[in-house]
Every structure is written in C-alpha cells, then in structure tokens.
C-alpha cells in the first residue's frame, strides 16, 4: 500500500524555495572591490582564516584596523543575518559566520591595540530554576552577530543576580528566556525590582512557556516570539523607539 503524498499534504518549504541559491543571493550583496569582496564571502562561508587574510590585505593597503570593523565586518555579517531573517539560510550558517566575524574583530583589535565601540550592550539570561538554555544561546548569538555586546548570565539565574548585573552593566536592553510555566514568574519579579530601583530598561522575554498575555502583565516586558526579534528590538531601541512603540511592534497577537 502506498499513497500519492500530494493528495494529503503540502511541503510548503519546498514550494516556497527561491530559484536562486543562497550563495547567489549573498554574492549579489558583495561589494565589487577587493579585498572587501573576499572578506564578505569569507564571512558568508564562515571561513575565519580567509576573513583574517582579507583584513591583512586591507590593512597592508593602508586601511585603519578599527574602522574595518564597521566598514567590512559588520556589513559583511549583515548580508548573512538578512538572509536568515528572510528565511533563506539556516541558523548554523549564521553561527559559523558570526564566529568568523568575531575572529575578524579580535584580529582588528590586536592590530590597532584599541577596542571598537559596540552598538550597545544587552544582558541575556534564562529564568531562575530553568535550565532550558538553547533559545537563549541563539538569542545571544544573533545579538552578537548584529554587533551588540552581550553579557550572557547563563541559565537558572537568580533574580538578584539579574538585577545586580543590570545595575552594574547598564545595558540598553535585557532578554529573558523561560520554557517552563513554573519559572517564567521570575520575569515579573525582575520587572518589579528594576522599577523599584528606578531602572526602566526594555525587558524582552521569550521561550516556549512565555506568551504575550503574560508579558503584558508587567511594565518593562516586551514579548519576543522568535530569536531574530532580539536584534530587531535592539535596532529599534538604537533608533530611539520607546517601550510603547516596542510593544506596538512586537505584540502581534
């Protein structure tokens, strides 16, 4: 016995696939000139050595090592994250590209002896009592890939520790992940403690157990459904958007 699957299901992922390959789509975004083009390609391919190789050439040709971070590494990485946001490439590609880009940043820092100013700082954590940390790891990786400095507090993080880190690090945004209905209440507590201390940092919360209704019950909370929403929200904060606008944008349900 067998069945004609087209009569009972649709593989929408196959149906929706673009005619062009991800490689072709990425190449369309590369600059025309070398060594920038090779650096972009090396980031896309996740080849650390080739990234460093290209950077070396640029520096030998007189480029400022720190400026290369903004001029080549960040835009090269943006090609990758844009393709991920559009659903054209997969997360492991982003992870490997981010590793290659970060290797490039380290190299530029070494060469110049100075540190670049990151776009902003984000504190990430998994709720107290919860060890489900893969979603958080993805969120942190995408934030780093987008050029943000991430203070990753890890998993099962006590409320006190989150509050202390926020006071010490003064981030532009906090993320929380919870996969259990029993642990997500810690977010509310963090919210209350921050407000008590007069701190009003947007607090994006996501993870399997968390839903928009719950996040709406505390002032600083913004619901984050997919990991990609974290860098998107950070970008909006950088662009001057306030809590209400963030909620407007991310509370889609």
């Amino acid at each position: 016995m067998d069945v004609d699957p087209s009569k009972i299901l649709i593989r929408y992922n196959v149906q929706k696939e673009k005619a062009q390959t991800p490689e072709e789509l990425a190449a369309e975004q590369y600059p025309k000139t070398e060594p920038a083009k090779s650096v972009y390609r090396a980031i896309f391919e996740g080849e650390e050595d080739d990234v460093v190789e290209g950077l070396k050439k640029a520096i030998d040709a007189g480029a400022n090592a720190i400026k290369l971070i903004d001029d080549m590494l960040m835009p090269g990485m943006k090609v990758v994250t844009d393709l991920y946001d559009e659903g054209i490439i997969f997360l492991p590609n982003v992870m490997m590209s981010a590793d290659a880009m970060l290797a490039g940043i380290e190299f530029c820092k070494e060469k110049s002896g100075s540190a670049p100013t990151p776009k902003g700082k984000v504190v990430c954590h998994v709720a107290e009592g919860d060890v489900h940390d893969i979603g958080k790891t993805i969120v942190a990786a995408l934030l780093r890939a987008a050029g943000y400095e991430v203070v990753d507090l890890g998993r099962d993080v006590p409320v006190d520790e989150v509050v202390a880190a926020v006071k010490a690090e003064k981030p532009m945004m906090i993320t929380g992940t919870a996969l259990m209905t029993t642990t997500m209440y810690a977010f509310k507590e963090i919210n209350d403690r921050l407000l008590e201390a007069g701190i009003k940092v947007p607090f994006q919360c996501g993870g399997g157990a968390v839903n928009q209704d719950f996040v709406e019950t505390y002032e600083l909370g913004v619901y984050g459904e997919e990991a990609a929403h974290a860098p998107q929200m950070a970008d909006m904060i950088l662009a001057g958007k306030g809590l209400e606008q963030l909620k407007d944008n991310f509370h889609m349900h």
């Binding site: 929408y12 992922n13 929706k16 991920y84 659903g87 490439i89 997969f90 997360l91 492991p92 993805i138």
Partner: peptide, 8 residues
C-alpha cells in the same frame, strides 16, 4: 516546523 530555519 517546515518553515523554520534553525536546523535542517
């Protein structure tokens, strides 16, 4: 699901 892009 089919349209997710985190792992093949």
């Amino acid at each position: 699901g089919l349209l997710d892009k985190n792992l093949a």
